[in-house]
Amino acid sequence: MLNYIWFGMIVVGFVVGIMNGRIDEVTKAVIESSGKAIEISIGLLGVMCLWTGLMGIAEKSGLVELITKLARPILRFLFPKIPAKHPAIGAIVMNLVANFFGLGNAATPLGLKAMNELQKLNPRKDTATDEMSTFLVMNTSAIQLIPATVISIRAALGSANPTEIVGTVWVATVSSAIVGIIAVKTLGAIFRRGKQWKL
């Protein structure tokens, strides 16, 4: 998909640029943007290193594990149909906690494991269960403790206060997670009723 979007943006850009008589600006943008991309990447390095370093300590000290334990009861409430001792719950909690701490590399394999565990509980193997949909929505609503990448970019671009968006991110992310969970539960109920009526 990105292949087409990338191609489309460049080609449309060149065509519109020629029509607008702005081809010189476009050419300048090609050169400038590639340089700017590297500048921003280098600006990213500092905060990203700081954050992954701190996360290393959080993992090693058992803090991540502790939060995982605390989050378990909430998760049991959201996934009532998963049996108590089933490994799916563990994988889901660990994935969400890894996302929460911004441990992207750890989160993806845990998420895949969670999906595979949920698939074992699935009576119809080609159809998504309510639990799978709930997990996906919770995952994509992305509850995140510190949006490290955004802070790094703001810092790299000379913001006077790069972390000022932490509070607003929390509010936005929590409200979208709540809306998402309500949407999943509502749509799930609608779909179940639809099945009764043989839709």
Partner: peptide, 15 residues
Amino acid sequence: VGLMVAIGVFRASGA
């Protein structure tokens, strides 16, 4: 690099 060039072209052209 790839994406910022595409966005740069897209913006500078007026698209």
